[in-house]
C-alpha cells in the first residue's frame, strides 16, 4: 500500500511537469495544426538560464528568495523571446508550405538550440543550486517533500491562470476563434499573427516554469534533457486529445501516474525481465491502448485530416 501511495505522489509531481509542457504543444497545435518539436529545447534553456542566474546571484550575496525569483523571471523572459523568435524565424515563413515541411525546421531548430546550449553551458551535467530547504512530511507511510507540494501548487495555479486567460479574456476568445476557423476569425477582425505569437509566448512561459520545476525537483540539468521531456509531454498531449487544454492537463497527470506506478511494479510484473529503467514502455503501451479505443485521444474531438 505504501509503495502505491508513494508512487502516486511521485507520479502527480512528474505529471504536473508533463502537463505544463504539454500545454505548450497543445496550444500551438490547436491554433495552427503544427507540432512545435523544438518546445522541449525551450524548456531546457529555461532550466539552464535559471541555474546560471541563481548561481550568480547567490554568489553575489543576494537573499535566496530574491535570487530564486529573479531566476524564474529571467528564465520566463528568455523563453518568451525564444518562443516568439522561433515562430518568426522557423515557422512563419513556411505558413503556405506543405504541412510536413515545418517539421524539418522544427527539428533543425531543435538541433541548433541544443548545440547552442552545449556551447554556452558545456557538455557536463549541471547541478541546480538548492533554493529551498527540503523538509519531509509523511502520510500513510508515504513520504513527500515541500518541494513536491510547491511544484504541484504552482502548476495548478498556472494552469488555472491559463484557463482564465483562454476562457475569460478577449485574447483567449481570439485564440479559440482562430483555432476553430482562422479564415472567419480573420474576417471578424482577429489578427491571426498576434494570436499565433501569443500562443507561442504563453506556451514558452509555461515551459520556462516547467523548466524551473525540473531543475528544483531533480537538481540536475543537461543540454540534452529537453528532447525526451518534450517527447513525453507531447505523448501526454496526444493522450489527452491534442488541441484540447483540459486534455493536455489530464494527459500529463495520467502519464506521470502511469510511469511512476509502472516503474514501481514493472519488475514484479515481468518477473524481473524488465527493470525500472524501462518505465517508458508504459507510456507507449497506454498510448496504444487509448488510441485503439479512442482514436482521437481521451478528450479529443474527431478532427479532419490534419497532421
Amino acid at each position: 500500500m505504501d509503495i502505491f501511495l508513494q508512487q502516486v505522489i511521485n507520479g502527480l509531481v512528474q505529471g504536473a511537469i508533463y502537463a505544463m509542457v504539454a500545454l505548450g504543444y497543445t496550444m500551438v497545435y490547436g491554433i495552427m495544426g503544427l507540432i512545435n518539436f523544438a518546445h522541449g529545447e525551450v524548456v531546457m534553456i529555461g532550466t539552464l538560464v535559471t541555474i546560471t542566474v541563481v548561481t550568480f546571484l547567490l554568489k553575489a550575496g543576494f537573499p535566496v528568495w530574491l535570487a530564486g525569483g529573479m531566476g524564474i523571471v529571467a528564465a520566463a523572459s528568455v523563453c518568451m523571446v525564444l518562443g516568439w523568435s522561433l515562430e518568426r524565424v522557423a515557422y512563419r515563413p513556411l505558413r503556405g508550405a506543405p504541412r510536413l515541411t515545418p517539421l524539418i525546421t522544427a527539428i533543425g531548430m531543435s538541433i541548433v538550440l541544443q548545440n547552442l546550449a552545449m556551447m554556452i553551458w558545456g557538455r557536463n551535467y549541471m547541478t541546480f543550486p538548492s533554493l529551498i530547504e527540503k523538509t519531509q512530511f509523511e502520510i500513510g507511510g508515504a513520504a513527500f517533500t515541500n518541494v513536491q507540494v510547491l511544484i504541484v501548487l504552482v502548476a495548478g495555479l498556472s494552469m488555472g491562470g491559463l484557463l482564465l486567460l483562454v476562457y475569460r479574456t478577449k485574447l483567449g476568445m481570439a485564440m479559440r476563434a482562430t483555432a476553430q476557423n482562422p479564415g472567419v476569425a480573420g474576417l471578424m477582425g482577429v489578427n491571426a499573427n498576434r494570436v499565433i505569437s501569443s500562443a507561442f509566448v504563453i506556451g514558452s512561459v509555461l515551459g520556462a516554469l516547467a523548466g524551473v520545476m525540473v531543475g528544483v525537483y531533480y537538481e540536475i540539468a543537461h543540454y540534452q534533457m529537453g528532447f525526451m521531456l518534450g517527447l513525453k509531454a507531447f505523448t501526454a498531449a496526444v493522450l489527452g486529445g491534442i488541441g484540447n487544454l483540459a486534455g493536455a492537463m489530464a494527459g500529463g497527470i495520467l502519464l506521470g501516474l502511469i510511469e511512476a506506478l509502472g516503474a514501481g511494479y514493472i519488475g514484479d510484473l515481468t518477473g524481473g525481465f524488465l527493470g525500472s529503467h524501462y518505465q517508458d514502455i508504459f507510456a507507449f503501451v497506454v498510448l496504444i491502448f487509448v488510441l485503439m479505443f479512442r482514436p482521437s485521444g481521451l478528450f479529443g474531438e474527431k478532427t479532419g485530416d490534419r497532421a
Binding site: 507540432i35 496526444v238 491534442i242 507507449f284 488510441l291 479532419g304 497532421a307
Partner: peptide, 11 residues
C-alpha cells in the same frame, strides 16, 4: 489518423 497515427506508429 493524422498526429495520432504519428504517435501510435512511434509507440
Amino acid at each position: 489518423r493524422g498526429v495520432y497515427f504519428i504517435m501510435i506508429t512511434l509507440a
